[in-house]
């Protein structure tokens, strides 16, 4: 760990693919944060370009709609001088029934060093990794993981809640549809890994099952031989929003998808908003300098009040900007062992 002393000269065991943040070592996280700082200063220059990925091809393949993640990856790859190929699933052979494996093989045959993949099925990037000779970057798979989002959230929070102890002992609330959220799952790993106390909060139907994870994490950490396990922050789960918000240092609001009501998990969107929307009034329960995050896209008025989005406590715009720096940092680490 870098806090303990001098960093190593080179990183041990950086994996070929970035599929998940679960199990990512603190040494690796620190290197991503340090590189993101460098990239942020590069992005502030008049000509924001590095030659790091010159002659490399980065293919962006999204099976789900997205603006910010997709554009963020494209800007990041171009700022590193990579050739970027964007594949729109709507206009590709996927609509003719081509399987993920065949599509990945085709992309490899056409020549690609890095494949940035978003898929609605959890685990799809793991399947793709078995059929791709280059590097896979998971840009979100089903409910499972969203590693780059979690790392950019961590980067953003560290810049604001930095200080001496970093995020250690900070109370961070993740609010909303936890059950269907890959953002929540990945953030639990990185934030507790940084020593923060994470509170998952939402209606009982949308936090179901997470109590077990919180318990397993406590038991698992006590038994784990991993050196940084004992430093991991706690995980708590509650449907009581007022309790969760008390003295919180940060609140991360998640998007509520309308389909959840149709699936019978919510009585109505209005009911949800009345009880779980993050309003300026509720935010007063938190620490006076608490910050607000949202991975986007937002439903203003449903899960978050417009006055919170535009308040000076909101880091939502900064998250988007930091996303480019963090993705540049990650892509620069994907360049070795090709």
């Amino acid at each position: 760990m870098t806090e303990a002393g001098e960093p190593l000269d080179s990183l041990p065991g950086w994996p070929r693919h970035l599929l998940d943040v679960a199990g990512m070592s603190q040494v690796a996280v620190e290197e991503v944060m340090r590189r993101a700082d460098e990239m942020a200063s590069v992005l502030a220059r008049p000509t924001a370009r590095l030659p790091t990925l010159q002659g490399r091809r980065v293919t962006i393949l999204f099976y789900e709609a997205s603006t910010r993640t997709r554009v963020s990856f494209e800007i990041a790859a171009k700022a590193l001088s990579a050739d970027v190929v964007n594949i729109t699933v709507a206009g590709s052979s996927v609509t003719k029934g081509e399987s993920l494996i065949d599509t990945v093989r085709t992309i490899e045959a056409l020549g690609s060093d890095v494949l940035v993949l978003r898929h609605s099925r959890s685990g799809a990037p793991y399947l793709a990794a078995q059929h791709f000779g280059g590097h896979i970057v998971n840009a979100g798979d089903g409910w499972h993981a969203h590693p780059t989002q979690a790392l950019l959230d961590l980067y953003t929070l560290r810049r604001h809640l930095g200080g001496k102890g970093g995020l250690r002992g900070r109370k961070i609330v993740i609010l909303g549809d936890i059950l269907h959220s890959r953002v929540a799952r990945s953030n639990v790993w990185t934030l507790t890994g940084a020593g923060a106390h994470v509170w998952l909060c939402g209606p009982p139907t949308l936090i179901a099952g997470f109590e077990g994870w919180a318990r397993a994490m406590r038991i698992g950490d006590a038994a784990s031989p991993a050196s940084d396990a004992s430093a991991r922050g706690e995980l708590s789960v509650t449907s009581d929003l007022d309790w969760a918000l008390r003295e919180a240092d940060a609140v991360m609001c998640l998007r509520l998808q309308r389909e959840r009501q149709e699936a019978g998990l919510l009585p109505s969107l209005r009911e949800y908003s009345a009880r779980y929307a993050l309003t300026a009034e509720r935010l007063r329960l938190a620490h006076p300098e608490a910050v607000v995050l949202h991975p986007g896209p937002m439903n203003e008025g449903t899960e978050i009040a417009p006055e919170v989005v535009t308040s000076d406590r909101s880091l939502i715009g900064e998250q988007v900007a930091n996303g480019v720096a963090v993705r540049m940092a990650l892509l620069s680490l994907m360049s070795a062992q090709a």
Binding site: P15, H17, L19, D20, Y126, L127, A129
Partner: peptide
Amino acid sequence: ANEAASWG
């Protein structure tokens, strides 16, 4: 994939 994805 699991081997290649494992974190040292």
